[in-house]
Design a protein around this nucleic acid. Structure first.
Length: 438
RNA sequence: GGCGCGUUCGUCUAGGGGUUAGGACACGGCCCUCUCAAGGCCGCGGCACGGGUUCGAUUCCCGUACGCGCUGCCA
C-alpha cells in the first residue's frame, strides 16, 4: 500500500512553526517513500475560519516550498478537503456508529460510548503504549457532536483519515494522549488504524509551548524578517531529527533521501532563534547571486530603493551578500550606494574629525583622481601606496574613506564599494564629507 | 489530582555497558584583516538525583524530582 500522509491544520490566521515542522515531516516521509501528501483543512466549528486564515496556510506552505498532492485548492480522489464541506460524510459515519450502538445523547450533544478496555497504541516514535481506558472518571466518553450540530475534532479527524485512506498519521505529541480515543473510533468503524508517529513539541525559551506571542512562532515571522526558506527548513529538520553525522547544514533534498521516523527523538525541543539565524547567514553566503537577488528583490522594492538597472542592483548585492544575515537588512546595506542623500552616523562622523583624517582623505582623493583604471586591485594598490607615502598604515586612510563614502563605519569591503560607486561619486563624496567634518 | 511522554553542555543534538562523552549555535580568547562578517585555532560548558543489575553504568531496570502534554460541547 502506498504511503499517504497528511497535514491537517486548523485555520488560525497564521502557520505555526510547530505546524510547519509537522507538515515538513509528513512531506519528507511521503516524498521519501514515493507516497502522497494531503492537505486537509480542519475548519469544523470556528468562527475565525476565514479565507485569509486559509490563505495564511497556503502562503506559509508555499514559501517553505512544501507541496501537496491533494488538497482544497487542487482536489483529489478523496475530497472535499475542507471539513466544513464534508458534513454528509460525517452524517453517514455517525449513522454507522449509531447503528452499532456506540453513541448516546447527553444534553443535546452526542457522545461516543467508550468500550472501556485497554487500548494499545503503536507509535513509530514513542513505541508501544498501553492506555487503560476503563475509568470513566479519568477517560470520559468523548463528545463527537455538539448540540448545534457541529463536529468535534476527534471524530472528524478519524473519519477523514479513514476516508482519505491515510497510512501514516504524523502529528504533534500533544495528540499522543488523544490517540487511544481515536483508536477506539477506528475499532468502532471496523477500520484498521494508520501507523502513528507523534513528534516532539517545539517550545519557547521558557520551555512552554510556542505561542503566538513568541518571536518566530509563525512562519510569517521568518518571511518578514528576511530568512530564506531553505534555512528555516534546515533548522526545522534539525529539531527532533538529525542526520547523525555531525552535519548541521543539510539540504531538503538530502534529508528527503535519509529521513526516517525511527530517528525522530521523543524529546521536546526549545526553538533557538540564534541557531536559525546562523543557518540563515550560512545559506545567504553560499547561495548563488541570482538566488540572493531574487530573494532580496521584494525587500529592495518595499524599501523604495531606486537602483536603476538590474545590473547595477546585482553589483551592489554582490558586495553585501557575504555580510548580510537577514534579507530584510539588504536595503539598509545597499541604500547608500544608490543615493547621495544617505545619512552619516554621528559617531562615524567623529572619525573624520580625528586629527589628520581629513588630510589623509584629501591625499587619497588626489591620488585616486589620477587613476587611469577603476577597479578593486588598482584602487587597493593606490591606497596602500598613498598610505606608505604618508607614513601611515592603510587603516588610517581606509577608515575616513569608508565614512566619507558610506556614512558609516561598518559595511562592505572598501574597494568593492569604491568600484561599485565609480570614481566620480567617490571623489564627490570625499569632498562632501570633508565639508561636513569641518 | 489522574494518565501519558520525556530528562546528555545555556540551546539543538551524536553516542551508548568499558569513550579524554563527539559536533553545532551562543559565549570568551587568539589568528587573519580596511570595518563588520566569514574562515582558522583554542577555551568554557553536560550524562537530573537515589537505588538496583553488572567486574564495570551516562548507557539497562525501578523509584524520586523536574518538565511537557492530555484529562473540553478547542484543534
Amino acid at each position: 500500500m502506498s504511503v499517504r500522509t497528511r497535514f491537517a491544520p486548523s485555520p488560525t490566521g497564521y502557520l505555526h512553526v510547530g505546524g510547519a515542522r509537522t507538515a515538513l515531516f509528513n512531506w519528507l516521509y511521503a516524498r521519501k517513500n514515493g507516497g502522497k501528501m494531503i492537505l486537509r483543512v480542519e475548519d469544523t466549528d470556528d468562527k475565525r475560519n476565514t479565507p485569509e486564515a486559509l490563505q495564511a496556510i497556503y502562503d506559509g506552505m508555499n514559501w517553505l516550498g512544501l507541496d501537496w498532492d491533494e488538497g482544497p485548492d487542487m482536489g483529489g480522489d478523496y475530497g472535499p478537503y475542507r471539513q466544513s464541506e464534508r458534513n454528509s460524510i460525517y452524517e453517514s459515519y455517525l449513522a454507522k456508529l449509531e447503528a452499532g450502538g456506540h453513541t448516546y445523547e447527553d444534553a443535546g450533544a452526542i457522545r461516543f460510548r467508550s468500550p472501556r478496555k485497554t487500548v494499545t497504541v503503536k507509535d513509530e516514535v514513542c513505541g508501544t503504549i498501553a492506555f487503560d481506558m476503563s475509568n470513566p472518571a479519568t477517560h470520559p466518553d468523548m463528545t463527537i457532536r455538539r448540540p448545534d450540530g457541529s463536529w468535534i475534532f476527534h471524530f472528524v479527524n478519524v473519519v477523514d483519515d479513514i476516508e482519505m485512506k491515510m497510512t501514516h498519521v504524523i502529528r504533534g505529541e500533544d495528540h499522543l494522549s488523544n490517540t487511544p480515543k481515536h483508536v477506539e473510533l477506528y475499532q468502532a468503524f471496523g477500520a484498521e488504524p494508520p501507523k502513528f508517529a507523534h513528534i516532539p513539541l517545539i517550545l519557547n525559551h521558557e520551555g512552554k509551548k510556542l505561542s503566538k506571542r513568541d518571536g518566530g512562532s509563525s512562519v510569517q515571522y521568518f518571511v518578514e524578517n528576511g530568512y530564506t526558506p531553505e534555512a528555516v527548513l534546515n533548522y526545522l529538520c534539525l529539531l527532533g531529527w538529525s542526520p547523525g553525522d555531525n552535519r548541521e547544514i543539510v539540504s531538503l533534498e538530502e534529508v528527503r533521501g535519509m529521513f526516517d521516523l525511527e530517528k525522530i527523538n521523543r524529546r521536546n525541543a526549545i526553538f533557538d532563534l540564534d541557531k536559525c539565524f546562523w543557518l540563515n547567514g550560512q545559506y545567504l553566503q553560499h547561495m548563488t547571486l541570482e538566488r540572493f537577488a531574487s530573494l532580496s528583490q521584494g525587500f529592495v522594492d518595499k524599501a523604495g530603493i531606486t537602483y536603476g538597472t538590474q545590473e547595477a542592483l546585482l553589483k551592489a548585492l554582490a558586495i553585501v551578500k557575504p555580510k548580510v544575515k537577514h534579507l530584510s537588512d539588504v536595503p539598509d546595506w545597499i541604500g547608500f550606494l544608490f543615493t547621495e542623500e544617505f545619512p552619516i552616523e554621528p559617531e562615524s562622523l567623529e572619525k573624520l574629525k580625528q586629527p589628520g583624517a581629513l588630510e589623509h582623505l584629501a591625499a587619497l582623493g588626489d591620488a585616486l583622481k589620477e587613476l587611469p583604471e577603476w577597479s578593486h586591485p588598482v584602487i587597493e594598490a593606490k591606497l596602500k601606496e598613498t598610505a606608505t607615502a604618508r607614513g601611515v598604515k592603510a587603516g588610517a586612510l581606509v577608515h575616513p574613506a569608508r565614512v566619507a563614502v558610506s556614512g558609516r563605519s561598518v559595511g562592505p569591503g572598501l574597494y568593492e564599494m569604491f568600484e561599485v560607486l565609480g570614481k566620480e561619486r567617490v571623489l564627490e563624496r570625499f569632498h562632501r564629507a570633508a565639508t561636513l567634518a569641518q
